[in-house]
């Protein structure tokens, strides 16, 4: 995994997401989810290319049910973009890189 991606948990979520100077794109994922695997390399690329503009965080839903429930995630992969700790936009399902960037660009 790219060093630029941060692993989030129920315990560290607020600290990371609220404390971040840049928007945080949180990937709600699980080991058993095929489409999650598909977007993983896309997120790695975005983390490298947009370093300093956006922080990518990964939250394993199996291990972190509190945050998963708090944001009513009911389908994975779900990506939620947080700015100043507040959710701005939610993307459900795997998407190509171009479309993903387009949908979050307004919030960066």
């Amino acid at each position: 995994m790219s060093e630029k991606i941060v692993t989030l948990s129920d315990a560290t979520f607020d600290e990371h997401v609220k404390g971040s100077d840049v928007p945080v794109l949180v990937d709600f994922w699980a080991e058993w989810c095929g489409p999650c695997k598909m977007i993983s390399p896309v997120l790695e690329e975005i983390a490298e290319e947009q370093a300093g503009k956006i922080q990518i965080g990964k939250l394993n839903i199996d291990d972190n049910l509190d945050v998963t429930r708090r944001f009513d995630v009911m389908s994975i992969p779900t990506l939620i973009l947080f700015k100043d700790g507040e959710p701005q936009v939610r993307l459900i399902g795997a998407k190509p890189k171009g479309q993903l960037l387009e949908e979050i660009s307004a919030y960066l």
Partner: peptide, 8 residues
Amino acid sequence: EPSSNSDQ
């Protein structure tokens, strides 16, 4: 390309 509707 990645999608959740089987043409991925």
